[in-house]
Nucleic acid binder design. Structure first.
Lengths: 138, 138
DNA sequence: GTATGTGCAAAGTGTTTGCATTCTT
DNA sequence: AAGAATGCAAACACTTTGCACATAC
């Protein structure tokens, strides 16, 4: 994603366009992740962004729906770019932690059932944990 | 659950039967939760169990499959008693955090599809986040 | 009696915050 | 020039660990 597109996204969220924000967004639009704050920090060019700024930015991007956050059974959050209309799930290998994206959503109808129960604004998180083909041969 | 049953579960897991472990297990078999370590600590009789022991016990119980842990979008884990054969999901209110249990599993067939993709030992976590009927009237 | 578990206090992570300085608009 | 964002260091919340004492078997 080029500078102009990055700027558009950031400005439309009502945030000013700064070096750290551009770099974080660029990375997450280029690589799907989902990445932890720490992984993102390591991938960013040295000195480009403080950890505090990174966390502040992730939080803001999440509030503005630019990013989603997910938690696999870990003690840190993971972030990924929220490609509009690209709702999806993951398979996470229990051994090597490799993540595969599943483009199809299997539970859309369930969201609707839950709305019929009187709930509003229904969302869900669905993740699969398994041992990947590669790790089975070790 | 009575003393005898609690002891059976704990001993069958290969752990010795102690006061803190009995109290934690008793609580979680009586109330579904899922509760955070902090909530559990508050519910236990004062002085009955140190926080360190609580965390150690939760970890062991989880390893022995006595408890499950889940993470809603929070920065702490929640624990619930693993009623054998009682696989289920939750609806969590985005406002008041009230949790409802959904007894039906909607994605069992998906687990099987993922096995056909070459994965082994497939599990999943599925949680719904919505605004509950009660919170809509505020 | 030996192994296992516990409490206490200290340390470890991941994340947030206060504040002075710097950048965006 | 005013407001917003950043870096740094200190603080926080949740969880883990080391060690001496206590309990289970």
């Amino acid at each position: 994603m080029n500078e102009k597109e990055l700027k558009k996204i950031i400005k439309e969220a009502g945030l000013s366009f700064t070096k750290p924000r551009a770099a974080i967004l660029k990375l997450l639009t280029r690589e799907h992740g989902p990445y932890s704050a720490d992984e993102i920090f390591e991938k960013l060019e040295e000195g480009l962004c403080d950890r505090a700024t990174l966390f502040r930015t992730l939080k803001q991007f999440k509030e503005k729906n630019i990013l989603n956050s997910i938690r696999f059974d870990e003690d840190f959050a993971r972030y990924e770019f929220n490609h509009p209309g690209h709702h999806h799930h993951h398979i996470i290998c229990k051994e090597c932690s490799k993540v595969i994206v599943l483009d199809h959503c299997f539970v859309e109808e369930i969201d609707q059932k839950i709305e019929l129960m009187g709930y509003k604004d229904v969302e869900h998180k669905l993740e699969f944990f398994a041992i990947c083909p590669n790790c089975q041969n070790k």
